[in-house]
């Protein structure tokens, strides 16, 4: 089934380094590989500073990649001509975390939403106005809001304006960079419901970046866990929450406070000591080794490969890979190769 799905975005060996002076290099994104299927949501989680946002911006082409490729419909977006790039921006949009700083305070809401329509020449005059009204309605605002300015709106309403702006040019793909973390609990539900509803109606594809793990589980089909610029685990959302394999994911999952007192009382938390190390000139080996209680010698020497250990479940961990090594007699590959011989 997995095969039949079409990958809208395919990221191959993507890296993004920043020079931070004195010859030091900050490896914000360090060799990512993943796919996002059309009409699905990939949740990207990790602690602050792990490179989630940099990943989102590089996938969007807002940062140029240091190396690697981001394939959108099979073409690398980092090697597009100017005209092709404009075409790409019509299909991909981003919603930002802070609904206060991401809207121009001197533009009316109508113009904020209409800007993309104008740039791409999608509609003019009355048609443009109609389109703006339609978008405002889609996100649950009124016609009269079009002539107002952003400061007249609450945080949740502004986030809706941000969503309306992203939808204005009918994109296929939207990067949602922490779209709910600045909002109140009750408003978070509104925005998440809206995103899910729009996805169902318009077959949108999302890259949903967040550190609120319970919301990520709710909205995502697949989830990827990042640690210090690398991906440590990738699988379906339900598999990740039920059977996390990487020691970091396990600790992360067990730290989520669950709004249920009885579960909280019996829950055993896997403590994780210390804090995330600096991404500037990282040490060789597995990046999590210094905080990992299972770390062996090899973990400090060699960077583990990002490998599929179960169908559709990728992990970068020496220990997990050793434990989950398929027994040759039971592997399907063994059988198939023999079939070829005969």
């Amino acid at each position: 089934m997995e095969r039949e799905k079409e990958a809208l975005i395919e990221v191959r060996n993507l890296t993004k380094y920043f020079k931070v002076g004195r010859g030091k290099i900050l490896k914000a994104v360090d060799g990512l590989n993943f796919k996002i299927y059309r009409g699905e949501t990939l949740g990207l989680v990790g602690e602050s500073g792990c490179g989630k946002t940099t990943c989102g911006k590089t996938v969007m082409g807002l940062y140029s990649a240091t190396s690697g490729e981001v394939l959108f419909h099979g073409t690398d977006i980092h090697s597009l001509s100017k005209a092709e790039k404009k075409e790409f921006t019509r299909k991909a949009q981003i919603i930002f975390q802070d609904p206060y700083s991401s809207l121009d305070p001197r533009m009316t809401v109508g113009d904020i939403i209409g800007e993309g329509i104008d740039i791409h020449g999608l509609a003019h005059g009355e048609k443009r106005q109609e389109r703006i009204y339609e978008l405002l309605e889609t996100v649950g605002l009124n016609h009269e809001h079009a002539s107002r300015f952003p400061h007249e709106f609450s945080g949740g309403q502004r986030q809706r304006i941000g969503i309306a702006r992203a939808l204005a040019i009918e994109p296929e793909f939207i990067v949602c960079d922490e779209p709910i973390s600045a909002l109140d609990v009750s408003i978070q539900a509104q925005v998440v419901n809206l995103l899910i509803d729009l996805q169902k109606k318009k077959n949108l594809t999302y890259l949903f970046i967040a550190h609120d793990l319970s919301m990520v589980k709710h909205i995502s089909d697949h989830v990827a866990v990042m640690y210090l610029g690398s991906m440590v685990e990738y699988t379906t959302s339900s598999e990740l929450y039920e059977f996390p394999l990487h020691p970091y994911t396990q600790a992360l999952m067990s730290s989520i406070p669950i709004p249920d007192p009885k579960t909280e009382r019996i829950k055993r938390r896997i403590p994780i000591e210390g804090e995330i190390p600096s991404p500037i000139n990282p040490k060789p080996g597995c990046k999590f080794a210094s905080r990992c209680k299972y770390a062996k010698d090899i973990c400090f020497r060699e960077m583990p490969e990002f490998r599929e250990v179960k169908r559709g479940h990728f992990v970068a961990c020496h220990e997990v890979q050793r434990r989950m090594e398929p027994v040759p007699e039971f592997s399907a590959a063994e059988d198939r190769s023999r079939a070829n011989e005969t």
Binding site: S154, S186, H218
Partner: peptide, 24 residues
């Protein structure tokens, strides 16, 4: 009740509509 229902619980199904308060 509204506050409790607006956060996803373990039992909430994926992509189900969460309860959301109307108004301000």
């Amino acid at each position: 009740l509204a506050l409790l229902q607006s956060v996803p619980r373990l039992s909430t199904k994926n992509k189900d509509t969460l309860y959301s308060l109307k108004g301000t």
